[in-house]
Amino acid sequence: MEKVRTTVPEPIVNIIDLFLYYGKVEALKKIALDISRKNITSFIGPSGCGKSTLIRCLNRMNDLIENVTIEGCIRIDDQDIYSPAVDVTELRRRVGMVFQKPNPFPKTIYENVIYGPRLMGIRKKGILDEICEKALKKAALWDDVKDRLHANALDLSGGQQQRICIARAIAMEPEIILLDEPCSALDPIATAKIEDMLCDLKKDYTVIIVTHNMQQAARISDYTGFFMMGELVEYSVTSEIFTNPREKQTEDYITGRFG
């Protein structure tokens, strides 16, 4: 069965026939999709379906894992990110990432947020202060922490920690923000806050989110991709996937028959 390639407006990322192997195990099978600029795209699917692996390809975090082989091509702004000419650190600056479990550094809130800008060589305190404030505001955390910027980030609650991590990614002014199940470790209230924030973020950034929570995908994303067994089963506008899935597997999954 030949899949229909869903077209999206203003694609920023083009994934073309991507295969990925962990050793000999095929983890991604011929993934092909485009991601729309300044929208929220969510990837859903059962555990082990390859959705996290896919977004880790987008900032080459898979490089850190041994025995990974990648075939195919990923273009971001029409540049092949796996070409030898690409500076990985530069790529990661453009493609920020937030992980499943909040992982702030054991440093102050302030130091966490400006970690990236510092690495780029920004030293002036005024500029760093400004970046910090802006990023925390965008991450909807400024009001919570503005009086204790120099407190240890690890003293914050889980939801706040995750927003620190988001602010840390935003501080780099990336084009794309990848979120790998950012709310899986959080309670519903913290989740709601982050979801609100993500909806604000899409004004400035392209957001790609991996989630287990279908309601979350339905609530916040503009496009949704459904993955199974390393394959992209269906990819289209969110409302369509949830109301009128083309594939039987998608329908089974979102209606809770398995997964």
Binding site: N59, M61, L64, T89, E90, R92, R93, G96, M97, F99, K101, N103, P104, F105, P106, K107, Y115, G116, L119, M120, C165, R168, A169, M172
Partner: peptide
Amino acid sequence: SLISASLALGATPWQTAVRVILPT
């Protein structure tokens, strides 16, 4: 996770070592 966080922010392995590994 800390190493990943640092690398995902565009740090080189050496920067990660000095700024994250050593202090932690």
